[in-house]
Amino acid sequence: MKILVCVSKTPDTTSKIAFTDGNTKFDEAGVQWIINPYDEWYSLVRAIELKEANPAATIHLVTVGNADAEPIIRKALALGGDEAIRVNTDNSDAYYIAAQIAEVAKQGGYDLIFTGKETIDYNGSSIGGMVAELVDSPYISLATKFDLNGTTATVVREIDGGEETAEVALPVVVSCQKGMAEQRIPNMRGIMAARTKPLKVVEPIAVDALTSIQSFELPPAKAGVKLVAPDNVAELVRLLHEEAKAI
């Protein structure tokens, strides 16, 4: 049983978002980098739980990024996982990234590929579906529960206005969100062990990027809150009705 967990480096959730170079680059000054929370809390931890239940399983981590991503990968390895692969590129096109992961997946012959439901920087929610297409596997998105029975997976996933339970034979690609597992903190033993776990760097395969970011833009600042006295809710209703036209 081989599991591939895709992890991505993202700015911490409390980071101030700003841009440089004429709004064409994300301003990294003072930014704290973390493992994308969906990749860490849900997909990686669930993979670790599966390995705890079945110690013969191996977990490989893959990240597509430049050398700056290595501290994040080490941190992920401190939580668990046997080895990591970094595809050395900083291209941000989803198809380009998915093609790199699909190549790693084909080489490794994995039974299970986990991604987070989206990254908190680009919010595309597209890597899992693209990888699934490129390796010709079924794809279960937005999973909140995942259980294995031999080579059959039972997955609960979010659908519009509810959830559904699905059964699928491995191999499968799954995007993970809240509910899959609980956040863990790496312990000292894990951190020490992570230092010596293999971290393989591979060069990207030749693929055309299909998109490129032209520029960024910050939303206009809010005009400031209009406060209404607590004993005058009728005024709030009037403002919402006449000014904001929201009710």
């Binding site: 700015p11 959730t13 978002i17 841009f19 908190i120 920087d121 680009y122 919010n123 055309d208 990027a209 299909l210 998109t211 490129s212 970011i213 032209q214 520029s215 960024f216 833009e217 910050l218 939303p219």
Partner: peptide
Amino acid sequence: FSGKAYAHVNIL
């Protein structure tokens, strides 16, 4: 960035 900014993305 979870709604904190916008990007203009070229499709090639």
